[in-house]
Design a protein around this nucleic acid. Structure first.
Length: 104
DNA sequence: CTTATGACTATGA
DNA sequence: TTCATAGCCATAA
């Protein structure tokens, strides 16, 4: 099994527990590439999806914002998915990373 | 080999 | 506060 950058990113995202969210930079850092947040996002774009074991909906921006435009059916759908897992949201429409940020 | 692109982040106005 | 720009680096062509 070759571990391409993408597959490595998926592996890290796969370790995100339910009810938690991680930023792209966080995932990138865990895979040993703290400067490759963009590549992580690009990896999510090519990810097999939740059915493939990659809960890309748990990956958000460093400030807690959701993916604008490129979500499964809109940021609204992604927000709903996270809420279903127990993730809290702020009035700003961002994830409450203060309590739901993934702790390593 | 080089160029272009991008689901990011940090900084500045 | 929000908006715009620069820097970053892997992948594809």
């Amino acid at each position: 099994m070759e571990r391409s950058f993408f597959e490595c990113a998926w592996d890290v995202v796969r370790q995100i527990p339910e009810g938690r969210v991680a930023s792209y930079g966080q995932v990138a850092r865990l895979m040993g590439a703290p400067r490759c947040a963009r590549q992580v996002g690009y990896a999510m774009h090519g990810s097999p999806g939740v059915a493939g074991g990659v809960p890309c909906h748990r990956v958000v921006f460093a400030d807690g914002s959701l993916t604008p435009g490129f979500a499964f059916g809109g940021p609204d759908e992604q927000r709903r998915m996270l809420e279903a897992e127990g993730v809290r949201f702020l009035p700003d429409g961002k994830v409450d990373m203060a309590s739901c940020a993934w702790e390593v």
